[in-house]
Nucleic acid binder design. Structure first.
Length: 307
DNA sequence: AACGCAGCCAACCGCAACGTA
DNA sequence: GTACGTTGCGGTTGGCTGCGT
């Protein structure tokens, strides 16, 4: 049984997006929010497949995208994350606000790989080029070496031979990844189901009842999925980890008396505070609310990661 | 100016994961 | 349990651009 195509190819545009198409997509998402990519093109009057719309939005049109060259700090962070995670571009992108997985992937392939090779480091294994592969300090079961990575939701890491420094870095990384996938930090940009009158108004204009139900249905799916991810994204570290806090304020101290671990935890909170913002509806994100946030957003205790 | 080449990046494709009927 | 629909991810490609000859 073959898979049905993701969209009707006969009547879809391909190739570069025009300004008009961009504007249509932005306008539609400004009003209706993300989600339901399958039906979006038709609803927005675009002759594109949903996948194409999603890609265009995520990689190019999203209002919070950072433009311009990668900084040295971003460079080093990418290298470090890649050494720990392999080609998990979406996870890596989650640690670089304003950068997309595609952008990072392209940057890796065009710049970072070469940079590492010039340093005498194998960009896949992050080990010296002339060194035979032996025990890695940190390997993933899904992405090590040239093996094709799978899209497993559960990534198991084995750090048995990791150095104390690596362990600290991994702790920090894990805490941030857990954070990303935690319930209030959905990886989706506008994940919440509208609950208030205001928000429903923001997202429902122009939709038929059926479309709206479908739209909400997908929001439910997203929520369930992210909740599922929250449970499933488990790096299964074989080392003891500092407790991961769900609040943002670093008031409680870790049980560990280890000064380094405290410093790491502190650094982790600082990073988190930089990349986190209050969760708001699409209207507020895109500034279509005339002033401040709608009441639902104001009352919400939900926070999202801000890419 | 014309050509070839390399680099870059937006976009596409195929597949896996996951939910639902 | 299975078929199907939808979404997201990672690998790949095609076309544009800049540079050297």
């Amino acid at each position: 049984m073959g898979r049905s195509p993701c969209c009707e190819k006969a009547h879809t545009n391909k190739g570069a997006w025009t300004k008009e198409e961009d504007e249509r997509l932005i306008d539609y998402i400004r009003v209706h929010g993300e989600g339901c990519w399958r039906s979006l093109p038709k609803a927005a009057g675009l002759l594109r497949c949903g996948k194409s719309c999603r890609l265009r939005w995520i990689n190019y049109l999203r209002p919070d995208l950072k433009r311009g060259n990668f900084t040295d700090e971003e460079d080093e962070l990418i290298i470090k994350l890649h050494s720990l995670l392999g080609n998990k571009w979406s996870v890596i992108a989650g640690r670089l606000p304003g950068r997309t997985d595609n952008e990072i992937k392209n940057y890796w392939n065009t710049h970072v790989k070469r940079k590492l090779i010039s340093r005498g480091i194998d960009p896949q294994t992050h080990r010296p080029l002339n060194e035979k592969t032996t025990t890695a300090t940190a390997t993933t079961t899904t992405t090590t070496g040239a093996a094709k990575p799978t899209a497993n939701r559960v990534t198991q890491l084995n750090f048995e031979n990791a150095s104390p420094q690596s362990i600290s870095e991994i702790k920090l990384l894990k805490s941030n990844i857990d954070f990303k996938y935690s319930k209030n930090f959905n990886s989706s940009f506008y994940p919440r189901k509208p609950e208030s009158v205001e928000e429903t108004n923001c997202s429902s204009s122009g939709m038929t009842t059926d479309e709206e139900q479908n739209h909400h249905h997908h929001h439910h799916q997203e929520e369930r999925k992210s909740s599922h991810e929250n449970q499933e994204i488990n790096l299964e570290l074989t080392i003891g980890l500092a407790p991961i806090r769900s609040e943002l304020t670093p008031t409680s101290s870790s049980n560990s008396a280890d000064a380094e671990s405290k410093l790491q935890q502190q650094a982790s909170y600082q990073i988190l505070e930089k990349v986190v913002t209050r969760g708001v509806c699409t209207c507020c994100q895109l500034g279509s609310q005339r002033s401040e946030l709608c009441s639902n957003c104001q009352n919400s205790n939900v926070f999202y990661r801000y890419y």
